[in-house]
């Protein structure tokens, strides 16, 4: 793994994280792993709360106003939509710095509808539970900064869902139902397992530009009314 240790925040403050997952063992594991990965360096994140179901999660997030919520997709409680219910229930909650609370979905489910559903509900990214500790730290930091985090799998879904793999390309960047040529390139490289840094190098652009493209794709994913996306969401009765 070559991803370097995440840069410290400009303010030097650790990211305040709430961990939501219905398996205690998994919560313990993630905490231990992240703590180990941060050992000996400036702490990137600090755990301020945990929750095992939707209602507890909403309560903790409202009480703690964390920067980032690591959110499992499938959770008991609420109206039965798991992570989506948490995001809905926490709408409008702001962090101490006055920024909106960000969500990073962390799940074992690879099912397209689960992934798309949490993203469309407002999550800033999606990673699978098999992600390494370093990568997870990077992802947390990135989400805290308001960027998007795409795993290769999510990038694959996006390429499929927007028909980009089939060659559909937006004429103008603002078009919501298609990816622009550049966004498609970025998504393809992420699907190939490239880090943002590597994507930047490959395309001769800056990491910041890669992040901008990824955020733009995320926005399209959340706002587009493209048929395939709607169909997925419909399957989960979200629309």
């Amino acid at each position: 793994m070559t991803s370097s240790r995440p840069d410290p925040t400009p303010s030097g403050v650790a990211v305040r994280v709430v961990l939501v997952d219905d398996h205690r063992m998994f919560r313990t594991g993630v905490r231990a792993e992240l703590t180990d990965a941060m050992a000996g360096a400036e702490p990137v994140c600090e755990f301020v709360g945990e929750a095992a179901d939707v209602d507890a999660a909403v309560a903790v997030v409202r009480a703690e106003a964390p920067d980032v919520v690591l959110l499992d997709v499938h959770l008991p409680g609420g109206s039965g939509n798991g992570g989506v219910d948490v995001i809905r229930g926490c709408a409008g909650v702001e962090t101490l710095q006055g920024r909106p609370v960000r969500f990073l979905a962390l799940s074992v489910s690879d099912a397209a509808e689960d992934v798309i559903a949490v993203i469309r509900a407002g999550a800033r990214g999606y990673v699978t539970k098999t992600i390494g500790a370093r990568d997870l730290l990077t992802a947390v930091r990135r989400v805290a900064d308001g960027d998007a985090v795409f795993s290769p799998r999510l990038a694959g879904f996006v390429l499929d869902a927007f028909g980009a793999a089939a060659g559909e390309i937006a004429e103008v960047d603002e078009e919501l139902d298609r990816l622009s040529a550049r966004e498609r390139e970025v998504m393809r490289l992420i699907a190939r397992g490239y880090q943002y840094k590597e994507v930047a190098k490959e395309l001769f652009i800056s990491v910041k530009t890669v992040e901008t493209h990824v955020s733009s794709v995320l926005r399209k994913l959340q706002l587009s009314s493209r048929h395939e996306l709607t169909a997925w969401a419909m399957g989960r009765r979200l629309v």
Partner: peptide, 16 residues
């Protein structure tokens, strides 16, 4: 990690 990406589209197949 070993990553593999296969894109099957009208322009052919690409595998990485």
């Amino acid at each position: 990690p070993v990553t593999a990406y296969v894109e099957i589209g009208p322009g052919g197949v690409e595998a990485f």
